[in-house]
């Protein structure tokens, strides 16, 4: 992300003209970013230190009160745990499935575009549509999942997947995994193009089996991209909202409550604007160190590679 340092020495007139045009070209974007991003972000920090309910014209200043309350909120622990489950499974499953698919596709040329399109489409669908159709699949009586289970004699497993507190989180998670796997697959497939095939052939000659080849030869070479995907899903896992909100709204009996839905319901349903804002900020701050650390690691790896 470092801006390039251009060291050609242009004449002063040129440099002045460049600076003038540069400022003029950046100004409109900066106006948007300032008004609709930086200002509300700064305001979020201010809000989080108030006790604002959305109507009170002069809300009380409570300093770090909201954050202290967050630390002792008994509902927050389970929501946080759900985020952790979401992050771990929601990262591991698409990565494992996506990598397997990519390795499977690696040597396939014929119809490869068709497969890529079929597998990528779930990723570009709006979350609402995914939520609607998966709730049909999970339908207790007529849904495909239960029909399938009954047809192979596993009637005991059939349940109302989204209504049962024990299965709801997994059911929503499966929908999310379905939606993201295609993306992980396409990214990994394109990174496989850079894997040194000669090294792989050599390993095969030396008698390495396919699992060993993947682990010792392929994975190290695609590690930067691999870490990038982990970063993305991890950061996304902290701020997951859409699909949970759409499919269960955090229910049944808070079984699928995540930090995002909890912040939303506090702010917009319980009118605890400041409390919800404080939580949203905590979520952001939680995710950033992970993102930065993984990004560093990734960059160090790609640097080593290019040397």
């Amino acid at each position: 992300m470092n801006p390039p340092t251009r060291s050609h020495s242009a004449p002063r007139v040129t440099r002045r003209a460049q600076a003038r045009l540069g400022v003029a070209l950046v100004a409109p974007l900066l106006a948007f970013v300032t008004v609709f991003f930086l200002f509300p972000l700064g305001n979020a920090i201010y809000y989080s230190m108030l006790d604002y309910n959305g109507v009170d014209p002069s809300p009380a200043f409570v300093g770090l009160g909201n954050f202290v309350e967050l630390a002792t909120d008994p509902a927050l622990g389970p929501a946080f745990m759900n985020n952790i489950i979401w992050i771990v499974l929601g990262t591991a499953a698409p990565v494992v499935i996506g990598l397997s698919l990519a390795l499977l596709m690696w040597t396939v040329r014929r119809a490869s575009t068709l497969y890529r399109v079929a597998l990528f489409i779930p990723y570009i669908l709006p979350a609402v549509a995914a939520g609607v159709v998966w709730s049909w699949i999970y339908d207790p009586m007529r849904g495909w999942l239960n029909q399938l289970l009954r047809s192979v004699g596993l009637d005991a497993l059939a349940t109302g997947w989204l209504g049962n507190p024990n299965t709801a989180l997994c059911a929503v998670l499966v929908t999310a995994v379905w939606a993201t796997t295609g993306f992980v697959f396409v990214v990994l497939l394109s990174s496989l193009r850079n894997v040194d095939a000669e090294l792989l052939d050599a390993a095969r000659m030396d008698g390495a089996n396919s699992l060993q080849r993947v682990w010792y030869i392929v994975l190290p070479q695609i590690m930067p991209v691999f870490l990038m995907i982990v970063t993305l899903t991890l950061v996304g896992g902290f701020s997951v909202f859409d699909i949970v909100f759409i499919m269960t709204g955090g229910g049944p009996s808070n079984a699928t409550e995540v930090l995002g839905t909890y912040a939303y319901s506090n702010a917009f349903q319980l009118n605890r604007i400041s409390y919800g804002t404080a939580l949203a900020l905590v979520i952001t701050v939680l995710a950033i160190p992970f993102a930065v650390a993984l990004n560093r690691l990734q960059r160090r790896l790609s640097f080593q590679e290019s040397v």
């Binding site: 991003f37 930086l38 917009f268």
Partner: peptide, 25 residues
């Protein structure tokens, strides 16, 4: 132009901060 890097970082901060964080204000 002067201040270019800092302005660029202020803009791409948006890649790190979810919409979530400032949607309420």
């Amino acid at each position: 132009f002067p201040g270019r890097n800092i302005l660029f970082y202020a803009v791409v901060l948006g890649l790190l901060v979810p919409f979530f964080a400032y949607m309420i204000p």
